[in-house]
Design a protein around this nucleic acid. Sequence first.
DNA 1: ATAATAGTGTCTGTGAGACATTATGTA
DNA 2: TACATAATGTCTCACAGACACTATTAT
Lengths: 230, 230
Amino acid sequence: MSAAEVLAGVDIVALRLSEEGVLQLLLIRRAQAPFAEQWALPGVLVNGRCVDASLDAAAERALHDKARIAPQHLEQVATVGNMARDPRGWSLSTFYLALLAPDTELQGDDLRFVALAEVLDGRLALPFDHAHLVVQAAERLASKAVYTSLPLYLLAPRFTVTEALAAFQASLGQAVQHTTLRGRLEKMKQHGWVLDTGAKNQPKMGRPQNLLEHRPQGAGGFIFDRSVLS
Amino acid sequence: MSAAEVLAGVDIVALRLSEEGVLQLLLIRRAQAPFAEQWALPGVLVNGRCVDASLDAAAERALHDKARIAPQHLEQVATVGNMARDPRGWSLSTFYLALLAPDTELQGDDLRFVALAEVLDGRLALPFDHAHLVVQAAERLASKAVYTSLPLYLLAPRFTVTEALAAFQASLGQAVQHTTLRGRLEKMKQHGWVLDTGAKNQPKMGRPQNLLEHRPQGAGGFIFDRSVLS
DNA sequence: ATAATAGTGTCTGTGAGACATTATGTA
DNA sequence: TACATAATGTCTCACAGACACTATTAT
């Protein structure tokens, strides 16, 4: 069996929720050709010499080595493979959705966050088919936000209902009734996924907010049995 | 950039609904090492010489070339990659879930159907990590059966409510109220996904059954806004 | 007091769950 | 007639949607 000449790698679509409630995408300035110096998704190649125990380990390595970041959630989205996506030839990319804590900071000027919306609507172009990967990852987040608690991984472990609302609305791209979200958080409390810290948070104005705590009891978010949409 | 030495391929978890309402898995007797002569998932390698336009095209090729079968539904499930799954070294497998028509017939004695349950509970072992792939594909089908109409792709284009019930129950691994399913089919009628052929089907005994027709209006099944479970 | 924000309560609609009832065929 | 199977109807419950109302802070 001859060694197959396929270029295989993992790419990461890492998202952070900004203080303004907007999703931001992590980009890295490529050091090597092709597309050297351009801003692109962080990623690594997987090959015979690679030390990764598994593909998921390679994804974690990509985030850790390239950006010194540990995500709060990491899941595989899909794998694309064709002749056109890389000028070097037929290539495979298994890409992951990573959700980062809102206080994630970047070190080094070869890393930056950009508004996810700018990539989704084409205002900001990315090399390879990275824009397409971003679209699919964003769709994954949106579709899971409909019936799971996945957007909570965009928040700090302690969060307020208002912050949770921002996370869901940014993930879904549309408004959500706060009463609906409160009902879901109540349901999660009953299953130990969320608990009421007695603590309060005082905004600049208005009534203090209850501080909740996210306690995942399994992978991938709590699953509700209804859609959050009409 | 040196050619990366990664063995990459696609494997297919193709399922058929038997007349007894049991899910069956398509296996092929391997012609080549490793694991020659053993029954395994159909699959093909993707490499630099390959003619496939894309990874999805390679999946279709695997089913067509190896089994002369065209599935009613084909979707990518995930990609696994590690050192242990193939004795030849670090390898990648992107695996797909394929749903076949119930009248799918096999030609050649290197193809057969086995009961999916036998693989899931370990009574029937498969080479590589194929049993693990089958588990994940079956989980994908089950989780989608909760809130989509995916199991209808296991039926002939014209089907009865009883057959649809069997498809859902086999996919989910648990009983479903027929009234619930009727409600969902009614909803699908309103959106053009199912229509009432005036025709009837006469079982050996009892009242004749209405014959419905499956008219997919998009990829991946109709999406409901509630879980079919409690 | 007023504004701003958080949290609760009420009413409606939808669709699943469970089960009873009716309909339509065969033996 | 008896039986088997399909199809429909009824009632309850959970929860999303919409919106009103109350609560608690700062200025």
